[in-house]
């Protein structure tokens, strides 16, 4: 199951959905909002998604993981909206009979999700500037941080 969520992610509830008597391994990944990116102090993050395409592409990524690795279950949920430091931006959980497949599949899902999902991140910096990540068109990322007011 892949989902875009506008509300906080509940990892315990998601993990319960993966319960499976055949599973010997459950690997989960949590992406958190951190306070520093490329030397700038981050105060908050805003995530925006093109939801229908993010959900279809996310579903495709999970199907690929199931095809590549010997999985029993796979879930990924990604947040949208304004997030504060320490908030969970993304959760991935996979189950398998053995740990090798579970570790590899979890890594695959988060790497592909970051590269492919139509989701955008706007960082809000100390001092009031903001920047859409990966969308700078000149100089360093700092040059793209335009005053909000």
């Amino acid at each position: 199951m892949f989902a875009i969520a506008a509300e906080p992610i509940d990892p315990a509830a998601l993990q319960r959905r993966l319960a499976d008597a055949r599973a010997g391994a459950c690997v989960t990944f949590e992406g958190w909002v951190r306070n520093l990116n490329e030397g700038q102090t981050v105060g908050a993050l805003e995530y925006e998604a093109f939801v229908p395409l993010a959900e279809s592409e996310g579903t495709k990524i999970l199907a690929e993981a199931r095809a590549k690795f010997d999985l029993l279950g796979a879930i990924c949920v990604h947040r949208t909206g304004l997030l504060q430091l320490g908030d969970m931006a993304v959760w991935v959980g996979v189950t398998a009979a053995h740990r090798g497949a579970a570790f590899d599949a979890c890594r695959y899902v988060i790497d592909e999700a970051k590269a492919r999902l139509p989701i955008w991140k706007k960082e809000h910096y100390a001092g009031g500037t903001t920047a859409w990540i990966n969308c700078a068109t000149r100089g360093g990322a700092a040059d793209a941080a335009k005053p909000q007011f």
Partner: peptide
């Protein structure tokens, strides 16, 4: 709501979204 090639043909009534560089995760 489907990714297309940059040179794909456009048709009457299409719903188009331009996708800037993504940054999920």
């Amino acid at each position: 709501e489907t990714f297309v090639a940059a040179d794909a043909p456009l048709r009457e009534g299409d719903r188009i979204v331009f996708i800037p560089p993504v940054a999920g995760g």
